[in-house]
Design a protein around this nucleic acid. Structure first.
Lengths: 346, 346
DNA sequence: ATTGGCACTCGGGTCAGGGGAGTGCTACCC
DNA sequence: GGGTAGCACTCCCCTGACCCGAGTGCCAAT
């Protein structure tokens, strides 16, 4: 029994099942693919694949359906990447090219991806942890409040108001502002720890509390994971594209997607994966609402466009039923991510 | 044939249909409500109600179901408002009380409303048109770019970058910043038109372009309706709570809700309605994806808490199937809106 | 105006039967 | 040993027949 052919059979099963949405039997398989053997042989292979846990049959006398494990093997070793069609490439370019600000770019990217994959698209906002500071501004409001405005690399703006124990001195604030910017601009959060802490030495002790408060505010803002946001698009595709079978699972999926915490955990975990595009299949998501769905995500916005693990600034991806077109989705996600990276680099 | 009883019958039909999700017949009606007449009499009333377009029967030998028009009459004249239970009141208070910033308040409000109504909750961010300016900050970035940061009444921050033809002069920028704030702070968009335009007179002609650009940016930002955002929660409830019949309509609804433009149009229209809480039933939404859904919204955040038309800063509401618990939803929406207004007033 | 009676309609559940797809097994061939 | 053909078996699912119950509309009686 040839090992190679058995894998061919698995690939054929996955492809047919994705295309037809129905359990696939031995006869249909030899008809649609030129495997060069008879249905009986295929049946033997199928029995072996079932023993190994790659496929199951919903009931006796039904065709076979891939398991999570089957899909996993498929994406890892069997899938051949399909290049995007040129209309698709053009769609990406025209749709993204005249985006205005960061919000607009993210918004367009997520809608585009949802439309191209016919699934739910997910984009994580550029993480503050990984982006570099461009500028810090201090704005006195009244004489007891100080507004700290932080502008990052990618044009994101965060602000925070401090309440102070003593009245502000305008000169001190101006000096602090200058020193802060020379010390911090262009650095990432991870790099600016010590640089900021030494800052207090340049001021008279009376100003210590002010300096410390501002420094703490800057660090706190950048460190605040909870400020990370994920935006969605195409949730309607979940219901439409999933078929009646999947329709019953859609409610827990929507719940999970709405829960930013769940999404962020998953995206963060996936950032650790090796390889450009990361895939989570069914139970691999470690979330019971998502056992019937798969995630395909990749990083974007890093120096190398997010290819290397940890090099990316955030993630973008697509969520769909277990039975999704993995090669197509992977190709599309990667293409949109590349384009997104290119635009953000400007 | 008593007119009063006929309305009683309509009310009973709506209530029973909402409760059971099944067409309601004459016998069931007299059993569940003490109408004091026989089923035959009810049948006559029902025939009249059907002629008048308030109810229909899905097929011969089925009970009756309210039409859009029937629900409309129900909410306008028949519904008796139910007060919230005290656990519900307590839930609102505890859930909202320790919200941090504006984003957090809005986020909590929308989740809370979704949970209480078991429907989709919708919150419009405080509109810039209606909020007052608190502060404008100008931040030079490099010597050809100027960042304009606008802080509003409710703590919302908007920013925009200007690209300039000539290098910036720091002194001019500082003066412009001061003048801008004294002229504009505390004013609403509608009020600050002329005040800003005269500003250019105070500067030398060479600075004219700069001043005009900044003024234009401020006005443009405040006027920009497209920057208005709507956040959602509880989309999973659409699928779960709607029943199998409604499940087929859920995809177009999700599409419509994702399309911010549609939502904003609807919310804006509803702001014109008189009365505290505004209701749109089925086709009244004027959107074909929403023919099977109703909207219940109210204003919040105005001086009077959003009670008077036009007095509110934005809207909050709930979206659900035609067959929803209108009295309950109306009461809940109003309660959450009141609490939200109270918190924002601080 | 209300009511009781009655014939009628129609949806939905149940049940049996048959077709079809698919399997596993066994015997056979190279 | 791997591949193949044949065959009996299983089980889903569709169909048609049937009945039951819920509900209606109408009419005559009160």
């Amino acid at each position: 029994m040839s090992e190679d052919r058995r894998l061919d059979v698995l690939r054929a099963i996955v492809e047919d099942y994705v295309a037809t949405r129905e359990p696939v039997g031995s006869r249909a398989l030899v008809e649609r693919h030129s495997l060069g053997v008879s249905p009986a042989t295929i049946r033997n292979d199928m029995a072996a694949l079932e023993d190994a846990g790659y496929i199951v049959q919903p009931h006796t006398s039904a065709g076979r359906v891939p398991t999570d494990k089957g899909y996993r093997l498929f994406v890892d070793r069997l899938a051949t990447i399909k290049p995007l069609s040129s209309p698709e490439r053009r769609a990406i370019e025209t749709f993204m090219e005249d985006a205005a600000d960061l919000d607009d770019v993210v918004d367009r990217a997520v809608r585009l991806l949802a439309q191209l994959t016919h699934q739910v698209a997910v984009v994580q906002y550029p993480s503050l942890r990984r982006t570099a500071l461009r500028h810090v501004e201090l704005v006195p409001v009244g004489d007891r409040h100080l507004l700290v405005v932080i502008i990052t690399d990618h044009g994101r703006v965060e602000q925070r108001t401090l309440e102070l124990a003593q009245p502000l001195d305008v000169g001190t604030v101006a000096r602090l502002r200058t020193r802060l910017n020379t010390a911090a601009a262009g650095r990432r959060l991870a790099e600016l720890g010590s640089a900021l802490h030494d800052l207090a030495d340049d001021f008279v002790p009376a100003d210590g509390p002010l300096v410390h408060a501002v420094v703490a505010a800057v660090e706190d803002t950048l460190a605040q994971e909870s400020e990370e946001r994920v935006v969605l698009a195409g949730t309607a595709n979940l219901v439409r594209g999933g078929g009646p079978e999947f329709a019953r699972h859609v409610s827990p999926v929507l719940e999970a997607l709405e829960e930013q915490v769940v999404l962020l955990r998953l995206l963060t975990e996936m950032a650790e994966d090796e390889g450009t595009v990361s895939v989570r299949i069914g139970r691999e998501t470690q979330h019971e609402g998502l056992v019937e769905t798969s995630f395909v995500t990749t990083g974007y916005g890093g120096a190398d466009g997010g290819a290397a693990p940890g090099g990316a600034v955030a993630r973008i991806g697509s969520v769909g039923p277990l039975r999704m077109d993995y090669p197509g989705t992977i190709a599309t996600v990667r293409a949109v991510a590349r384009y997104l990276s290119r635009i953000l680099a400007q």
